[in-house]
């Protein structure tokens, strides 16, 4: 899974009021090249939760995103390339996503997070 997916997922266990963002335990991370599309990134910028993305990319071992970012940075090619890399090229292959409220672990195996809830969590 890539970090754009992480930016959308939230823990939905019964009783949890704020399940976003899920913390990341990274065991294996891979990088795959994707075409650079600045227009797409500019469009995504306003929709992405930046704090969550920066923390997630750090958890995957990529610390080159600023902790806060503003729309004025979108003119910088360097910034866009870092954003591109974090959002679209980093893959969490093995590890877990962890509910920020309960600590419940959702395993990630072969790149696929398992967000299925147990009966008593629904």
């Amino acid at each position: 899974m890539r970090l754009l997916t992480h930016n959308m997922l939230s823990s939905n266990i019964k009783g949890v009021t704020n399940g976003f963002p899920l913390q990341i335990e990274a065991v294996k991370v891979v990088e795959k090249q994707v075409d650079f599309n600045p227009d797409f990134l500019k469009n995504m910028f306003s929709k992405v939760d930046w704090t969550a993305l920066a923390a997630a990319s750090k958890a995957l071992g990529y610390a080159d995103l600023p902790e806060a970012a503003g729309a004025d940075m979108l003119d910088s090619d360097d910034f866009l390339r870092r954003f591109h890399h974090a959002l679209l090229q980093l893959h969490l292959e093995e590890g877990a996503l962890v509910c920020p409220e309960t600590g419940r672990r959702f395993p990630v195996s072969k790149g696929i997070p398992n967000m299925l809830l147990h009966e008593d969590e629904v």
Binding site: M1, T5, S10, F20, D49, M115
Partner: peptide
């Protein structure tokens, strides 16, 4: 490239206007 999530759509937690 395609991402996958294993989940039950009836009780999925999802944030924001990205899709």
């Amino acid at each position: 490239e395609m991402d996958f999530v294993q989940c039950d759509l009836r009780n999925l937690g999802w944030r924001g206007p990205i899709v």
